[in-house]
């Protein structure tokens, strides 16, 4: 089983990113579940959501304690939340950032998802959309296939700019 914890702020689409990722994994022929952190979500407050991917049906409902990967959609949450908590040794950390972030003992990577969203004019109510480009970056990391990532995005969004943003993130990802 591969377990991912996504850190974001309420309203940034962290839950939708989890859902897209799970759907893409299902299109890859795997089993997946996506879950928000169960509580009252407030806009702007740090939140987490969870994705589990496996070759077998998933029977676990409790929260992810020891993720294989951590995705940070908003780097500013790192000031208030220990995003590395419980992360397995040698686990992956992906941060939405222009600057390269390195975390010793972990495999670190980053892409400027916000910049990509702004370039594609993918903005809703003044906020750049991060949940579709991040799927492109995760596809580059091999978490899901590119085909399934695009299929999942098209299943949930009609605006083709979402796919373009995911493709841009895929290209910019250093891998």
């Amino acid at each position: 089983m591969f377990e991912i914890r996504i850190h974001s702020r309420g309203g940034q689409g962290g839950v939708t990113a989890a859902r897209l990722l799970a759907l893409a994994a299902i299109y890859d022929g795997k089993y997946a579940t996506a879950a928000p952190f169960y509580g009252a979500e407030r806009r702007g407050a740090p939140i987490v959501s969870f994705v589990r991917i496996d070759d077998k049906p998933i029977r676990i409902y409790s929260q992810i304690r020891k993720p294989d990967m951590v995705v940070v959609l908003d780097a500013s949450v790192m000031d208030v939340v220990d995003v590395l908590q419980g992360l397995k040794a040698g686990g992956k950390v992906f941060v939405n950032s222009q600057q390269k972030k390195t975390f010793s003992g972990y495999v670190s990577s980053n892409v400027d998802l916000t910049g990509i969203a702004l370039k594609e004019n993918l903005v809703v109510s003044g906020s750049p959309i991060l949940n579709t480009p991040v799927i492109g970056a995760l596809a580059k990391m091999g978490i899901v296939s590119v085909e399934s990532a695009k299929k999942a995005i098209r299943e949930m969004f009609t605006d083709e700019r979402n796919v373009k943003a995911a493709e841009a993130a895929f290209r910019e990802m250093s891998a």
């Binding site: 989890a18 859902r19 799970a22 759907l23 299902i26 089993y31 997946a32 579940t33 996506a34 879950a35 928000p36 169960y38 998933i58 409902y61």
Partner: peptide, 12 residues
């Protein structure tokens, strides 16, 4: 069905 645990989880 269990509140949140099942009502809000996304599964196939």
């Amino acid at each position: 069905l269990d509140g949140f645990l099942l009502s809000h989880i996304m599964q196939p």
